[in-house]
């Protein structure tokens, strides 16, 4: 191919791509979903099942801390759906007029994870206040970190102060927090119960019911897009709920 032919070929390819998007015969719909880091595996499977049932759909997934995703959407990141680990982030987008529709998606409990070699040091929730424990939390501004601090607060201000004195790092998302314990860098962390399914080499210590704070996941439709609407319906359908449940989440299976 001569050098001169390349631009023509590029234009032709672009035109074909446009035709494929706009054509009536086989419309290929791309659905961009931004989701909380804790939904990584669950949404991976959700997207796969969705694409399986709708061969014309193409789901693109991006995972990060809900707070970072919220800022990205506010700054104009092109996304069709936003699944947040807390209603606050969705509310911020709704306040900016970016949400077409939102639904409750699932709930998630908190759990303490302990590194294998630190198992002897911490036996229960109270052990988090043990002096010298290397604790890692998710940053206060990210849902997982907010919930963890709310849970600590339920156990009293003095206990909270002692636990926070053990914090060695405030990670950007809950999976980074979990990784620090998996690597043995940290002794313990507070993460979501659903994260256990994706965890290696850690032991779980349950948080007593009276100190539990349930994370509320919400999913928001950010624009009118048939494919995105279908994905929203699928995520909150019985089939979608079953997938979420398999990954340790408690789906809110009722319709809006």
């Amino acid at each position: 191919m001569s050098l001169r032919a390349i631009p023509a070929a590029a234009v032709a390819t672009a035109a074909l791509a446009l035709a494929a998007c706009g054509g009536n015969d086989e419309p290929r719909q791309t659905v961009t979903v931004l989701a909380a880091a804790s939904l990584t595996e669950a949404f991976g499977e959700l997207a796969e099942a969705f694409e399986g049932s709708r061969p014309d759909a193409d789901v693109r997934l991006a995972f990060a801390g809900s707070a970072a995703l919220r800022t990205q959407v506010l700054e104009g990141a092109p996304a069709d759906l936003f699944a947040s680990a807390s209603p606050d982030e969705v509310a911020a987008l709704a306040a900016a007029g970016l949400v077409v529709e939102q639904r409750a998606l699932a709930r998630n409990a908190l759990v303490v994870v302990v590194a294998e070699d630190a198992s002897a040091r911490i036996g229960d929730f109270a052990g988090l206040a043990e002096p010298g424990l290397r604790l890692v939390l998710t940053a206060e501004d990210v849902p997982a970190g907010r919930y963890a601090r709310e849970s600590l607060a339920l156990a009293g201000t003095e206990f909270t102060a002692r636990v926070l004195a053990n914090v060695r790092s405030n990670e950007a998302n809950v999976r980074a927090t979990l990784a620090k314990v998996e690597l043995g860098e940290a002794d313990a962390a507070i993460v979501y119960a659903s994260d256990l399914a994706a965890a290696n080499g850690v032991r779980a210590v349950t948080i007593p019911a009276r100190f539990q704070v349930a994370a509320e996941y919400r999913i928001a439709l950010l624009g009118e897009n048939a494919g995105a609407r279908a994905f929203l319906a699928f995520a909150t359908s019985p089939e979608g709920s079953a997938i979420l449940a398999r990954h340790g989440l408690e789906p809110v299976a009722v319709a809006p």
Partner: peptide, 11 residues
């Protein structure tokens, strides 16, 4: 800067 980016009014 990365941490600030994640706050509600962080930008």
């Amino acid at each position: 800067i990365l941490s600030a980016f994640e706050r509600a009014d962080g930008l």
